[in-house]
Design a binder for these strands. Structure first.
Lengths: 223, 223
DNA sequence: ACCTGAACACCGTTCAAGT
DNA sequence: ACCTGAACACCGTTCAAGT
């Protein structure tokens, strides 16, 4: 845990701010988001407090308010940052619509379940950041090629969004429940094996659930 | 806001505790749950603090710990209490499986969205109370009649659970967003009309989304 | 412009003490 | 058995002040 730094550099042209303005702000939104994610990865969702994020950055809690308005902003920024990878490698526009839906949904779900805190916060904060929007839009674009009327597509979009969010939320809840039930009573090797098995099972379930929705969409289109 | 009561009744046989034991405990789990729900209905999810629940009941915050272990227990108890109505009037065993799924899912969803705090907490606490289990089991029982293999049914169960939770969560989030966007700029009559319209639209969407899943289940069974 | 420091009005939870 | 009261170790956020 870093102490608020005490600025004891020797006085010289190089350290002195180059006019009225400070040379480099100690903080920035990016640094704050990075610190927030580091804290969340290490200590989990309940550890997200203004004071702890500030400590992570060697700064006072009140300094954060220069860059964000409230604690919730940190949550929203961290969540969207974590969705950046998922939004980076989206299927191209020539991808058939069904596989585009599948891989985009899976990427979204994986980003949320990779870090437990992401799924926990996603259930509590609406996902409105640019990366969340990019993911949503890719799914919407794919459904545009799915046939059916506007109404059908609007329903399908909601169904997929609900499914992704619901699946991510219940997956991390079940993991937490399983971990609590296990207690401390298992050796590391067995735990690692069963964890990777469990992950494969979870992912298979997610894919099948999405397939079920796609089957429904196809069936609807046929009638 | 009730003050902790100051016990100034006249001394008599009727007021005096009838031996070592107290006549009637001032508190009980039921009273605590009722107070919690009253508070949540009035002031919303962020108002749920041990101190405020205690004030609601005219008691000190620390007294609650005789009946519950932690704040989360209040959340779990309040959530399950709110699901009691929904679990009370479930479709009978002779109901055709598709309509049993539809009405049970709808009851579950409605219970969660009727009070915003219920959906908010449902996204954050696993629903493991007796009433939540009764609702889940009714859906599971219905799916037993849906045909298909065990694996298909397990997938369908997850899909429905994810859908209910996801739909409830996003519905209340959208309502909150819409309310924030409106600000204070609308008269009460117009607001009431548009709120009831919006509710009808929401419910129609939910029903259609469930229908989409059911179409998927049917299609799967056919192949 | 950017950060500190003090302060306000809260939190959940523990534990010893009363009755 | 059941409730109080004091206490501990926190919270988010505001605002004036420093540089």
């Amino acid at each position: 845990m870093a102490e608020p730094r005490d600025n004891q550099q020797p006085d010289s042209v190089f350290t002195r701010p180059p006019r009225g303005r400070r040379a480099q702000p100690a903080l920035s939104r990016e640094r704050i988001v990075a610190g927030t994610i580091a804290l969340l990865d290490r200590d989990g969702a309940p550890a997200l407090t203004m004071r702890k994020v500030a400590a992570e950055l060697g700064v006072h809690a009140t300094s954060l308010y220069w860059y964000v308005d409230r604690r919730e902003d940190l949550v929203d920024l961290a969540l969207d940052a974590v969705l950046a990878e998922a939004a980076a490698g989206l299927p191209g526009p020539d991808e058939p619509w069904e596989s585009a839906v599948k891989t985009t949904a899976r990427r979204f779900y994986t980003a949320l379940t990779d870090r437990a805190w992401a799924a926990e916060f996603a259930g509590v904060r609406p996902l409105l950041g640019p990366n969340a929007l990019a993911l949503s839009r890719r799914i919407i674009a794919a459904l545009a090629d799915s046939g059916g009327g506007d109404e059908d597509r609007a329903v399908a979009i909601r169904a997929l969004a609900n499914q992704i969010l619901g699946a991510a939320t219940t997956t991390v809840a079940m993991r937490a429940g399983a971990a609590a039930a296990r207690g401390g009573t298992d050796d590391a090797r067995a735990a690692a094996v069963s964890a990777s098995d469990a992950l494969a099972v979870e992912n298979a379930y997610f894919d099948q659930v999405i397939d079920l929705l796609l089957a429904g969409i196809r069936a609807r289109r046929a009638t």
